[in-house]
Design a binder for these strands. Structure first.
Length: 425
RNA sequence: GUGAGUGUAGCUCAAGGGCAGAGCACUGGACUGUGGCUCCAGGGGUUGGGGGUUCGAAACCCCUCACUCACCCCA
């Protein structure tokens, strides 16, 4: 085997490609019903956009981006996530303006250079929704409800919603200092990675899963206890709103975001039915991001769904959208050389009538032609021999019932109608 | 980036130092303008790749690549 797909990328073949397509369409529908409209974003951007928005000290930027240079030497990157691109586009096209509310969604492949494993690919797909221009906690609640309700309706197994507050630029630095003091005091009890992160990205230490770190981290001060009055109020209203919607959630003090631009509410949906990569959707509020990227002071809240992970869950639940192969209505087989042009004429005429039709040209024996017609999913086979050619007819056989009729091939409107009518004994 | 487990026909898998095999799929025939069933026959492989040990390697050793899972990170 000479060539094979690069590591961590996957070919999606029928019927899996059709199933995936249906899942994407379903998510478009869900976002669309909540008022979001699609933006098509480029697959690469200036590398700088991602390091500025995601954060220099995150793994994504430090070691997982696919970087390359443009002809002019500019530094470009395949997008590792969608929010940065969407916000860039919203600023560029003046959709992120004070007082203006925009609901936008995107969908498509993302790229991160990681070691592949269950639910983790180097090219994977995300669908994300972003609501710009509102800082109202009920918009957080509504966005969360959109995904949670759909998860309920499609029986996503063992799914739990976790939420936390990341605070705001007013209160997070104070908490950060308190946390760093606590971590430094307990430095000897922490793993090497945590010791290093205490300097570089202290909030991430809370996310550590090394067993020996757990007692220290469990006892660490909780961010929610140090929120400023505004942030506290926002978080409480989100919690109350979710309760009002009867959406169950768990406040998880050690839930933090890997991406620096999140403020206030952070949330994610996890499922024990997945492997180690248990998060299938995640999001949060990012009130500082638009300005951070050079736009106006416009708040935002958004989320992204990992489509491959959702697909795994829906497969387990048995609620995957039905993969439908495009139906071939009729397969047309010329029995003699002289009937070939006639076959082409009928194929074109039927397709023009909206009937899907394939030609079977490469089979010398009629038995093979029947087998191929079945394999291609045809409902009918149309046989064209010398008799049909001279009489201007076509011999139709309905493959399901075995009913056979020889009818005029033209006008095509009449033939198309015959093919659409039920053929029962 | 680290670790473990797997790589044999298109697919699912046998053979565990001594002739590389089965089922399904594929191709041809029985069957010349009428399919699915059946029967008969056939094609397919440098055993992921490279090197080594051995009279002899799919098997044992080393390197490498890929897949799977876990760490890490994240959707």
């Amino acid at each position: 085997m000479k060539y094979q797909a690069p590591r961590g990328v996957k070919d999606l073949l029928p019927p899996d490609s059709e199933t995936f397509r249906r899942l994407e369409d379903e998510i478009r529908e869900v976002f669309g019903r909540s008022g979001f409209r699609e933006v098509r974003l480029p697959i690469f951007e200036s590398a700088d956009l991602f390091s500025r928005s995601i954060g220099e000290s995150t793994d994504i930027v430090e070691k997982e981006m696919y970087l390359f240079s443009g002809k002019g030497g500019e530094s470009l990157a395949l997008r590792p996530e969608g929010t940065a691109s969407l916000i860039r586009a919203a600023i560029e096209h003046h959709l992120a303006e004070p007082g203006r509310v925009e609901r936008l969604y995107y969908q498509g492949p993302m790229f991160r250079h990681e070691r592949p494993q269950a639910g983790r690919l180097r090219q994977f797909h995300q669908a994300g929704a972003e609501l710009l221009g509102s800082s109202d906690p009920d918009d957080d609640v509504d966005l969360i409800a959109t995904v949670s309700r759909h998860a309920q309706a499609t029986n996503v197994p063992a799914s739990r919603l976790l939420i936390n507050s990341m605070g705001c630029p007013k209160c997070r630095p104070a908490y950060r200092e308190i946390l760093v003091n606590y971590l430094v005091k307990n430095r000897d009890l922490l793993c090497e990675t945590c010791q290093r992160r205490t300097e570089t990205n202290p909030l991430r230490v809370l996310d550590c899963k090394v067993p020996s770190c757990q007692p220290v981290l469990e006892a660490a001060p909780h961010l929610v206890e140090f929120l400023c009055p505004e942030s506290r109020n926002h978080f409480e209203q989100v919690c109350r709103g979710l309760e009002g919607e009867s959406l169950s959630f768990t406040v998880t003090h050690r839930l933090v975001r890997g991406l620096d631009y999140y403020t206030e509410t952070a949330f994610e949906w996890v499922s024990d039915a997945l492997g180690a990569q248990s998060t299938w959707a995640a999001g949060g509020r990012y009130n500082g991001l638009v300005r951070h990227l050079g736009g106006a002071d416009v708040p935002g809240v958004g989320l992204a769904i990992g489509l491959e992970r959702l697909l795994l869950l829906r497969e387990l639940a048995g609620t995957l959208p039905q993969a439908t192969r495009p139906a071939v209505h009729i397969a047309i087989h010329p029995l003699e050389e002289t009937a070939r042009p006639y076959a082409h004429r009928i194929l074109a005429a039927l397709r023009h009538q909206g009937i899907s039709a394939v030609g079977i040209f490469g089979q010398a024996r009629i038995k093979r032609a029947f087998l191929q017609a079945e394999r291609e999913g045809a409902l009918f086979i149309g046989l064209l021999g010398g008799d049909e050619l001279s009489a201007g007819t076509i011999t139709l056989k309905h493959l399901g019932s075995g009913i056979q009729k020889t009818l005029p091939a033209f006008p095509p409107e009449v033939l198309a109608e015959t093919l659409r009518a039920p053929w029962t004994p």
